[in-house]
Design a binder for these strands. Structure first.
Length: 286
DNA sequence: GCCCAGGTGAAGC
DNA sequence: GCTTCACATGGG
């Protein structure tokens, strides 16, 4: 039966923390809820005592796309059990109860993180919003408020037809040619994002790093946030500082060394552990 | 004005 | 291997 509303029953899920933890950049807070666009669907999400209530503009038959994005069916407690039992990790988990990893569209995730390098999260949001406004399509219902969060994320094919100057006008600076090159490779089939799903972690990582402007960190973000490679462990400036201070307070450790430490220390769901540490140090330790 | 931002790639040792 | 630098742009 098609409906424009559903309640996804889930416990221990902090919707606000999850949508605002730097893994995705387009969700708009509105009073008690969050609005955004997933594929063709405009959605409004609201946290309730029983879970997450979703409302759409058009009737929906099958809600799997939303369950998939929100990852409401995973066993969070089982994942938390695999984290190392040390002080920093315990503090991070205690500080961010219900923080989750989303499962995003690979293209939007890749494009967003190509735009993320040496930008603050607020600025990444601004750039992405401009990009969607100028190259996306309006998806919101008539009644939706004007402003951000009502345009779809532009397809690779659409951006492939843009000029570098048009992209630079979205304030992305030197990242413009990188985004344009990725869009063109994907649009004309030279690079296949879907193929990566079937690859082993290391091969998928190497493939992403073939793209100009995509190094290890951005590749890890895409592997973790879009493809669900739970052992991917993005090391950005925040995580690097945190690992240094929390785990190597005496001697200075090279980035290489920190990466190797992370790969073994945090277990099979290292990426989840990373998200807890990242959100913890950014919001609780400022 | 200065420093930094969910980095990357190239060039220098 | 490691260090340094340029690359746009805006916030604090």
């Amino acid at each position: 039966m098609a409906a424009t509303e559903i309640l996804l029953r889930v416990r221990n899920y902090d919707l606000a923390a999850t949508l605002d933890s730097g893994q995705t950049f387009r969700w708009q807070p509105q009073q008690e809820s969050w609005t955004g666009i997933l594929g063709e669907h405009w959605v409004q999400l609201t946290q309730t005592p029983d879970g997450i209530r979703a409302a759409t503009a058009a009737p929906v038959e099958n809600w799997d796309w939303l369950r998939q994005f929100l990852q409401t069916d995973i066993d969070l407690a089982a994942i938390l059990k695999t984290f190392p039992d040390d002080g920093p990790m315990r503090a991070a988990v205690a500080a961010c109860p219900g923080l989750r990893l989303l499962r995003q569209d690979p293209w939007e995730c890749l494009a967003s993180f190509i735009l993320s390098s040496t930008k603050q999260i607020v600025q990444i949001r601004q750039i992405v919003a401009l990009l969607c406004e100028r190259f996306g399509e309006r998806r919101a219902p008539q009644a939706a408020l004007a402003g951000d969060g009502i345009y779809s994320f532009p397809s690779a094919a659409r951006l492939a037809r843009a000029t570098e100057a048009e992209l630079r006008a979205c304030k992305m600076g030197f990242r413009a040619p990188n985004l344009l090159a990725a869009a063109r490779e994907i649009a004309d089939g030279r690079f296949d994002l879907e193929r990566l799903r079937k690859l082993p972690h290391a091969e998928a990582r190497a493939a992403l790093m073939q793209l100009r402007g995509v190094g290890g960190k951005i590749a890890d973000c895409v592997l973790l946030f879009a493809y669900g490679f739970d052992s991917a462990f993005p090391v950005d400036v925040w995580i690097e500082r945190a690992l240094q201070q929390l785990y190597f307070p005496r001697r200075r450790a090279s980035e290489q060394r920190l990466r190797r430490f992370a790969a073994t220390h945090f277990g099979p769901h290292a990426g989840y552990a990373q998200q807890y540490l990242f959100h913890y140090i950014r919001t609780k330790l400022h």
